[in-house]
Simulated assay, not measured.
Amino acid sequence: MLSVKAAVARSKGGPFSVEDVLLGQPRADEVLVRLVATGLCHTDLLARDQILPPGLPAVLGHEGSGVVQAVGEAVTTLAPGDPVVLAPMSCGSCRPCLTGHPMHCVSFLPLNLRGRRADGSTAYRDAAGAGISGHFFGQSSFADHVVAHQRSVVKVRADAPLELLGPLGCGLQTGAGAVLGVFAAPPGSSLVVFGAGPVGLAAVMAARIAGCTRIIAVDLHRGRLDLALELGATDVLDGGQDAVAAAVVELSGGGVDFALDAVGLPRTARAAVESLTTGGTAGIVGSAGTGQDLSVGLVQMLGRTVKGILQGDSVPALLIPRLLDFFMAGRFPLDKLIRPYPLADINQAVADATGGTTVKPLLLHHAEG
């Protein structure tokens, strides 16, 4: 087994502990990846707080980018030295997977949140040899090296700046995939985004690429609203005001074509629906955890569509390289969202993210070989 540094969540709501973890060798259909950088996502904190599984202790993290170190004998599309971005796991054989919707895989939750491989095993053990939860979203990238199934590993172009790209595998593909794929927002259309965090700002950038002429961002933090304007929003609104949906309708001249809730609270999801014009579509991509109910008037649903969207309903092997090409062309400036931290400073990164001073913390790894 390989000894690697990892940030381990050991207690509900407690700090991450950076320690030595033992990592097994890749199986026939797996890949060993040396991590360069990993984004910190709100979902990692939901798992740390045990609002979501897996059980603790666990190596979390699911926005990793790095370099392939070794591949199993059944892997034919990847080789040592390949630059890669990691993405969630899918089964590859269910109806959604076979019809181009792997992020809506019927086994998505057990494959990505159980903390184990599909057969119940784990490649992760603590220094004493006891098994710990891993394989989080197909990776557990709060570690210097990971073992991931080949379906979770996306090869990217050779000149890719890997130190920036981890968030493409989750938050950024979620927001951008909703706009470019699920909505397929046409030029001249209008969009409101509730929540100007990484997911919402990715949606703003994607809307500008799509040619939306009115892009409204709603948030509680003035700094994030200013960033939204820099990234392409035409208008911003304070999310703390009363009747924010009515303000969107007035600002857009009768309601928007598309609304994206990147927060995941009942009030923001309802506001997304209430912001629509007739014929509009609302997408719910945020989640504050289970037990949240949405109440919407039936009349408000007439002529409107509401979709729950997981991971942008993307095919990561297609969308991630596409977003990278947009970034390299200066059209998807994801670097404006990012602040780097050493892995050892993960708890400071958490504090800055939850305090709203950092939009997207990026943990830098320094493992070699």
Rank of each mutant, 00 (worst) to 15 (best):
D293C: 13
V285Q: 08
P333V: 06
Q300A: 11
V285R: 06
R322C: 06
G312L: 02
L324P: 15
D325Q: 10
Q292G: 07
S314K: 13
T281A: 09
D313E: 15
A282C: 14
A329N: 11
L319K: 08
G330M: 05
G312K: 01
I309S: 02
F327P: 11
I309C: 01
G308F: 06
L302N: 03
K307S: 01
G312Q: 02
I309R: 01
G286S: 04
D313Q: 14
V315P: 01
L294Q: 04
S295M: 10
V315N: 03
V296F: 12
A282I: 15
L310S: 00
A317W: 03
G297F: 01
A282Y: 14
F332D: 05
L298A: 12
F327E: 14
D293T: 13
V285Y: 12
P333E: 05
L294V: 14
L323P: 03
A282P: 00
P321Y: 14
G289T: 15
L324W: 15
T290H: 04
L323Y: 08
Q311W: 09
L310Q: 00
D313K: 13
S295I: 08
G286M: 00
L324F: 15
G297T: 03
L298I: 03
D313V: 08
D325F: 09
Q300G: 07
G308H: 04
G330T: 14
R304Q: 05
T290A: 12
F327R: 15
P321E: 10
L310V: 05
V285A: 15
D293R: 13
S287I: 13
M301Q: 06
D325S: 08
L323H: 08
V285M: 12
G291S: 11
L310T: 03
L298D: 10
D325V: 04
G291I: 13
M328Y: 06
